[in-house]
Design a binder for these strands. Structure first.
Lengths: 336, 336
DNA sequence: TTGTAGGCGTTATCAA
DNA sequence: TTGATAACGCCTACAA
């Protein structure tokens, strides 16, 4: 399986490979006529630049690594869409990997990206991530990264693009209050992640503002199974609530399914608000009131910031914290 | 930003870099004691193998490229899960790219993968894909690929892992017939793709078997918007149908939403069957009867086949066509 | 068990 | 405008 190289083109044309290289890179230091000749011969021989060799020589590969919990979550797949758009325009390739919410997977992925000499990393950390040695490694290796959505503290070098989860939690909760709910429960996620901690804070703030009692369960991982479990708990331990704010849609929807089967009327008995605006939330009945995070915009912005930092050649990092304001999407699960 | 190389380790230890290389590759042709020494020094210096250089030298990169229409479709994200599992065990990296159903994107992606010298490609083609020059290019460059789900004809070199869409279409349609439907419409996808053509064939076969009349619309791309459009057409041109088989869940669900608003009762007025078993199909009311494609199993099998072919060093390709039988998931949208 | 030497395919620097 | 040469970092015959 012989691969055509610049040397073969050079040999065929009886010129030097360095000239071929220049021509293929469209340098202006090569005569137009020979350039044409070279391009033609390259086409003819089916030449294809060996990106590995080129990157090795240039010590960079024009590649951005993206690390997310899972591609199947709507927020993340929209973020990817935004990232790819920006990256492509700037001539970067994108490598996507999913941690599946597992810290060890996340570690391996980041190690791998470093080893592959990516130019930068966009990351939304897993639910298990508490330490950040793997990210410290990036810095050590001169690879800039930008957090989006789920971030960690302690990285003055790196930017982050997030939403105001505190505001989101506050808005969700106050919406329930405005609808007349008096006993509102909140079901949160891992508190090591700011997104969940802040949603909880926002919830508390809204309660405090309106002088209502606090009623929250221990945080879960907010999977579908967790949602079902939480619904059972509601029927057992939170029997008197009239409103519930779930920290994501997946758990909220699973809970709704269970509660409906148990004869609880939504929103009459319990009004419900989710978080993320998964496509499913529009489909379930009653449709689920939720908070939209506009993943595509966040992805775009994060990618811009990263490319900016890559361009800066990691001298002075742009460690901006861009914060978007999430939007309440009012639907039937709170329509009283 | 100095990167630690094997040479620096060698210099620090006053030995040759080739010994270092051997030690780092855990060769048994280096004394245990020096190996220990080298590993320790490597750790100490924060050495990290330059995968680019290593791959260049070895002329292969232990990487599999995956090309799919979109990550946000349940079938594809489950397929990815299966692929990653198998790939990881075999020590391969996985690069995921989405064509977004656009042929030119798909072409670019494949070109890119070839340029990056991936060891093999797993692909499920876009709805726009009719030609396959880009894949012929893979063969020409000695890169094996395996189709999964959406495949093309004319590649005797490459295997494929698919489901029996004909059977799926037949099963879906006969299910409607068994439920008492007499006038069943089918809404298909691009006929260049075998999956949709075969689902249509299966539909026809079931009708023929039961002596029922055929009633199908021109194929669409089966997006959400298409689903809404199809629902409008049903109200206008297919007013008398009592059953509908959609070639995917996304369009079926969009249609259901519209029909419900228009006062059509499901399944009483029209029974509906989708295809793919998207998570949403379980959530909508009535829950949607559909055909499950078991993405993870397909992904796994496809990846195994590919790795098999990679191992064969593209001498004799395993061009097996593995066909899985899809399963009907009966839900409320056909419960008469 | 270790060292020597050369090359994977490109690109950058210098000289012509 | 072109050519010669070295280097990017690693691996692997071959020799010692």
């Amino acid at each position: 399986m012989k691969n055509v190289t610049i040397h073969e083109i050079a040999r065929a044309l009886k010129i030097d490979s360095s000239t071929v290289s220049r021509a293929l890179n469209n340098s202006d230091r090569v005569k137009e006529s020979t350039k044409k000749l070279i391009l033609k011969k390259a086409e003819e021989l089916g030449y294809r630049r060996n990106v590995l060799a080129s990157n090795l020589r240039k010590r960079k590969g024009n590649t951005i690594g993206v690390v997310i919990p899972r591609v199947s979550r709507h927020f993340f797949s929209s973020a990817i869409a935004g990232i790819e758009k920006v990256a492509q325009e700037a001539g970067f390739n994108v490598i996507i990997s999913q941690s599946l919410e597992q810290f060890d997977r996340e570690e391996r992925i980041v190690e791998n990206l470093i080893s592959n000499r990516v130019d930068g990393i966009l990351i939304s950390v897993s639910m298990e991530t508490k330490k950040a040695d793997h990210l410290a490694n990036c810095i050590k290796n001169g690879i800039p990264f930008v957090f989006f959505d789920r971030h960690l503290e302690g990285f003055p070098e790196s930017g982050r693009v997030i939403i105001d989860d505190n505001f989101g939690g506050f808005t969700a909760t106050e919406h329930l209050i405005n609808k007349g709910c008096k006993r509102i429960a909140h079901f949160s996620g891992p508190q090591d992640l700011h997104v969940y901690k802040n949603r909880l804070e926002g919830y508390k703030k809204a309660l405090a503002k309106h002088n209502l009692a606090y009623s929250s369960d221990t945080p879960s991982r907010l999977t579908e199974a967790d949602g079902t479990l939480l619904a059972k708990k509601i029927l057992k331990d939170f029997k008197d609530i009239d409103g519930a704010f779930f920290a994501n849609d997946i758990s909220a929807i699973a809970a709704m399914k269970y509660l409906k089967k148990a004869g609880i009327r939504i929103p009459e008995d319990i009004a419900i608000v989710g978080f993320s605006n998964e496509p499913m939330s529009e489909v379930i009945e009653p449709s689920l009131t939720t908070i939209d995070q506009s993943g595509e915009i966040i992805g775009k912005k994060a990618c811009e910031l990263l490319i900016d930092n890559i361009a800066k050649g990691n001298r002075v990092f742009n460690n901006e914290a861009v914060v978007f304001e999430p939007k309440l999407i009012e639907r039937d699960s709170t329509k009283k």
